[in-house]
Design a protein around this nucleic acid. Structure first.
Lengths: 138, 138
DNA sequence: ATATATTTGCATCGTAGTTGCAATTTATTT
DNA sequence: AAATAAATTGCAACTACGATGCAAATATAT
């Protein structure tokens, strides 16, 4: 878990400091993998309304605190973005989805490759999802 | 549009030939981009029940006719997989999502790069989604 | 043509996404 | 420190997709 004061951090992002936002941020700091809205609801002991969670995730995405991860199962997943700035970690990292435990893990040490597109296409962002078996399930 | 007889094709896949399956396959053959369930419903003029569409997509995925494309917006998208076997097309291709027109396009001529994972992780499949502006919207 | 197997549509339920609004909470001002 | 202004929250409500059971309809096999 990262040593980050949620109040100081949220203040630095220029948003109102509320219990819901502090709790949701704490959950992200505690868990190292990507989270769904339902998981956050569970990890906060159903103390926060799901609409508030949804709106908070929206806010955090717009502020660049977290980012949405594409998935096949029609479930929005989010993960912390900018706080993990240890050496060797890439902001533009890739995501690993484990077939066995179902967790989505940010592989901060693996950089997203740059891709050459056909003429006429302009790239703004590249998302890579690798599926397979994770470290804990091998 | 690819010149493929839907009856012959479905028979070769070893599935029952029904109107719904022929219609849905035709829609995929007509459009070159990835489709959502709602788009298929629209393109078939609401002639097929959405549950049937859902189940057909499920069947087509299991038979390897189409494949699901990961997305951020919690909407399942599917695209044809094996029929496009022109030279220079990769089965393991990548997907482009246009910010402007919202279409998801299979870039068959761009191969998915192979990625080196940290020790303990085993890769089975890699999905790449590039977001930006497409050829038609530039 | 009949029998068997599969598929379809309808009903239905659960869950996520989304919006409006009044009550509450946070921040600011005096 | 109280009053005011601004933003957030929870609730209700609605839409849409995912998913399953079942009887009716359709496709295949005999």
């Amino acid at each position: 878990m990262l040593e980050i004061d949620t109040v100081v951090f949220l203040k630095s992002m220029g948003v109102y400091i509320t219990d819901a936002r502090r709790m949701i941020l704490s959950v992200f700091l505690e868990k190292e993998n990507a989270l769904t809205q339902a998981e956050i609801l569970r990890f906060t002991n159903e103390a926060i309304d799901r609409v508030t969670i949804w709106r908070t995730l929206d806010l955090f995405v717009s502020k660049g605190i977290i980012h949405a991860i594409p998935s096949m199962d029609s479930l929005a997943r989010y993960a912390l973005l900018q706080t993990k700035n240890k050496a060797g970690c890439f902001n533009n990292h890739l995501h690993f989805m484990c077939d066995n435990c179902g967790k989505t893990i940010c592989l901060d040490t693996v950089q997203v490759p740059s891709i050459t597109l056909p003429a006429g296409f302009m790239s703004k962002q590249t998302e890579v999802i690798v599926k397979g078996t994770c470290k804990n399930c091998k």
